[in-house]
Structures are given as C-alpha cells and as structure tokens.
Amino acid sequence: MIEIQEITKSFGDKPVLRGVDLKIDTGESIVIIGRSGCGKSVLLKHLIGLISPDSGRILIDDEDITSMRDSDLYRVRHKFGVLFQSSALFDSMTVRENVCLGLDEHTTKSGEEKMVIAKDKLAMVGLSDVEDLKPAELSGGMKKRVGLARAIAMDPQYVLYDEPTTGLDPIMADIINELIIRLNEQLDVTTIVVTHDMVSAYKVADRIVMLHRGVIMFDGTPAEIKNTDNKVVRQFIEGRAEGPIKPVPIGGISLRGDRSG
C-alpha cells in the first residue's frame, strides 16, 4: 500500500504540488489524470524518491521513503517498475541488455537464465526476435513495450506508467492499455498510471483521481467521474477549451482567444 500524505513541492518559486493526499491500495489499478504540466510526472517521481517533497510523507508499505537512507531507498525501489514517458531506453544498449540491466546489477543469475527471463518478459509484452536490436531501430510502440519489459524484469509489486499512450496511434494505444490490464491481473501488481488520455483512463482504471492546481480535486470510479457535477473535472474529461480551467498564458498572450469558439 502506498500512502501519500500532504506532500508539497515547488521548483524555485513555482509551486507544483500543494498538499497531495492519496492512498493507493495493493492490487488496485489507479489512474491519475491532469493537464500537461500539472505535476503528474513530478508526483510519480516522488513515489520512488527521484524527487523529494518539500514537506509531507510518502509511505511505501508503511515505510517512510522521505526520511530514508539511500541504501534503504534503493531497497524500496526494487518494489517498483517504471515505464517512463519517453520510454527512456538506454540507447547504447541492445533490447536484451536494457531488459537485463536490473538483473545484471542485482542478481547472480547466469547469462542463460537472464536470456530466458528477457525472452519471457518480452513475450509478455508481445515482442519476439527484437533482443539484439538497438532502441533507435524500434518504433514508438515497440519502445514502450521494451520499456515495460524492462520495468517488470525484476518482478515488481508496483508498476508505474507515465503517459503510456501519449504519442502512439490509437491502435497501439489500445494494445498498451490491454497490456496494462493484463499485467495487473497476471502479475498481481498494483498499477499506477498517469495520463491525460481519457480513453486510456476509462479503460484501465478501477479508480481515477484528478490532479489539478497541485491538489487531488477528484477521486472516484470511472462511472463516478463520468457523472460528476464538478465543472473543472467535466471540462477536462470532455476536453473543452471553454470552462473554469484557463489555458496557460504563453509569453504573456493567453491562448484562450485562439482556442475558444
């Protein structure tokens, strides 16, 4: 179980998280939605201690990672697998080396055992015969899947997805959604997805929360969010320019005028 308690985080004088409270139960599949730049990735990175909060606590299975020694933090990170927004494959390594890196560093498994694991995890994400390719030779969807195979290589308890469908065509996006669901069931993991893709959110979520202006402003099931009266949430899930959410001004000029109508 993950408990995020009142975390705040600013970069310079720009507050990004202003007191986020969230409890994530083991085994559930939770989707965190929010506008681009609202702090979804920042929140996700807090969960594995890549960013430390200015205040507040984060408990991973009752252990507070915000006040932990580095060695303990690395131990806790073994519980996590992360699929990054840009896949973040190591571009100097082959697909197999990417998938096996965690095993190389943390286990004493033989080369052969690792080959089998890599093949197995790649098969789980629907890939075969790509082990010797370099990331530059893969399409966007394949990169995501290799990133996912790497994330689950060490059998994590929690799998984090940062915008897993962004930048993919709708068919590939759906393949990824199916994968998220299947891994959640097959591997018995807790799934945390961050996205602004509502199709994906409705499909994979047991529960959807919305991050807005640095706080969780909605928390409910997909059915509940579809029927909410909250104007901000409605505007977001329906994808309208008009509403209480004001487009971010760029260079002092509001985009509002251009987008409305």
Binding site: I48, V82, S86, G102
Partner: peptide, 11 residues
C-alpha cells in the same frame, strides 16, 4: 531523456 531516472528506478 529520463535514462538517468530509469537507472535510478532500477535501483
């Protein structure tokens, strides 16, 4: 490109 974050996420 988040590769350093990815390393850290692999502990």
């Amino acid at each position: 490109t988040e590769q350093i974050d990815a390393l850290e996420s692999l502990a």
